[in-house]
Design a protein around this nucleic acid. Structure first.
Lengths: 206, 206
DNA sequence: ACTGTTTGCCAACGATTGTTGACTTCGACG
DNA sequence: CGTCGAAGTCAACAATCGTTGGCAAACAGT
C-alpha cells in the first residue's frame, strides 16, 4: 500500500495547533466546490473550474477527495440547525419556521448547491430526502406528540420551503424575488402554520 | 442558399391530407426529447440518446431543429390550459386550482422536462418565468379585479405548485410521493385558497 | 546535510459530447 | 426511364470532461 491521501496520517509533532498545510487547500477546494455546485448544478460544475477557483491543479481535487461524487458528498454536508420548537406559543410556529428557513438559505450556499444538484443527481436527491426526514421529522414529532402523520407534515413543509427557494433563488421569478423578507414571512407563515398544526384532513388515508 | 430544412417548402401536390413523411419523424424526435429532458435534465439528456429513442440518426435531429437549444425550445412548449375561474364559488378556487395542476402534471411530461431543465438552463428558466407570468397572471387578474398584487399572487402559487412537483415527482420524498391525490388536495387547497383570495398582509410593501 | 514524506504541477489518456459535411437511398413528377 | 429534391446514413471533427501516473518542490526529522 503506497496510497498518499493528504491528512491520512498524523504528523508526529506538527504545527503548534496541529494544523497541517493541506487543511487550508482542502477548505479552499470545499468552498470553491460549494460555489460552483450552487451556481451551476452537478454536471455543469466541472472539477477543472472548481480547481481554478481554488487556485490549484485539478489533480489535487482528485487526491483530496477521490472523485467528483465524493467531492460533492463532502461539499454538500449540511445541518438545518433547527431549534427545539416545543416551548414556543403554538400560534407562532409558522412565523419562526419561515424565518429560520430564510436564515439558513441566505447564510449558506450549501443548500443551494444541494437543491440545484438534487434535480439531476440521485445522490444529491437522497441527501435532500434524508435532510427532511432526519432533521425536520424529529422536530415535528416533538411538537405534535409523535403522531403517525409526522412524516407527512415534514414532507408538506418541504414542498413549501423548497418551492419558495426554487422560485426565489434558483428561477428568480420576478414577483417572488422582489418580495421583502417581511412580505415573504407574512404570506408564508400561515401555510407553515397550517402544515404544522392543522388537524389531518378527514379523507386522508394517512 | 442551399439550406435543406425539412418542411420548409411545401410540396406542390403531396399526400392527400398534406402530411409529409417528415412529420412523423419530427414528432418522434419531439416525443423522445421530452422523455429524455424530463428524466435527465438538460445537460444529461444527450442528442445521441434522444435520436436512439426515436430510432433515427443523431444528424437528423440537427437538420430538423438546428441545435440542442432549439430542440429544447421546441420540445418545451407548454400550455397550462387554465380555465376561466371567474364564475366559480370563491371558496372553491383552491380545490379547483390544485386539481388542475395535478392533472397537467400527470398527463404531460413537458412540465417535468421544463422543471428539471430550468434549474440549470437559463433558457428553460426564462420559459418557466413566462409560463406563470403570461398564463397564470391573467387568470388571477380576472379573479381579483386586476389589483396591483396579481403578479405576487401568481408567484406565490408558483412556489407551492412547483414545490409540490419538485418533492413529489422529482425528488420523490417518500411522505409526499405516498400521498393520495385526495390527501394532496385536502392539504394544499387551503394554501392555494390563501394565496388567491386572502387580503394582502399589512406589512407588505407590495 | 541526508532522507523520507507531504504537497503540488504537468502532460496525457480514454470517453463522451455537440456538430458538420459528404454520400446514399427513397419517392414523385416529367 | 431519368431527374431532382427530400429524407436518411455514415464517418469524422474539435472541444471538453473525469481521471491517472510520473516527476519536481517544500518540508520535517535525524
Amino acid at each position: 500500500m503506497t496510497e498518499t491521501a493528504p491528512g491520512s496520517a498524523e504528523p508526529p509533532t506538527g504545527t503548534p495547533a496541529g494544523e497541517r498545510r493541506s487543511d487550508r487547500t482542502r477548505a479552499a477546494i470545499l468552498t470553491a466546490a460549494r460555489e460552483r455546485f450552487a451556481a451551476d448544478g452537478y454536471e455543469r460544475a466541472t472539477i477543472r473550474a472548481i480547481a481554478a477557483d481554488a487556485a490549484i491543479d485539478p489533480a489535487m481535487v482528485m487526491r483530496y477527495f477521490g472523485n467528483k461524487e465524493k467531492l460533492f458528498a463532502a461539499a454538500a454536508e449540511f445541518d438545518l440547525r433547527l431549534p427545539d420548537l416545543s416551548g414556543l406559543p403554538r400560534d407562532q410556529l409558522g412565523v419562526v419556521m419561515i424565518g429560520h428557513f430564510l436564515n439558513r438559505w441566505e447564510g449558506d450556499e450549501t443548500l443551494m448547491a444541494l437543491l440545484r444538484a438534487s434535480v439531476t443527481n440521485e445522490a444529491a436527491a437522497e441527501r435532500m430526502r434524508q435532510l427532511f426526514a432526519d432533521q425536520l421529522g424529529p422536530v415535528i414529532a416533538k411538537l405534535n406528540g409523535d403522531g403517525s402523520d409526522t412524516a407527512t407534515r415534514a414532507g408538506l413543509i418541504a414542498t413549501q420551503a423548497l418551492g419558495l427557494a426554487l422560485c426565489r433563488y434558483v428561477l428568480a421569478l420576478p414577483p417572488v424575488a422582489a418580495l421583502s423578507r417581511a412580505a415573504v414571512t407574512a404570506w408564508l407563515a400561515p401555510t407553515f402554520q397550517h402544515y404544522l398544526t392543522s388537524a389531518a384532513p378527514a379523507d386522508s388515508p394517512l
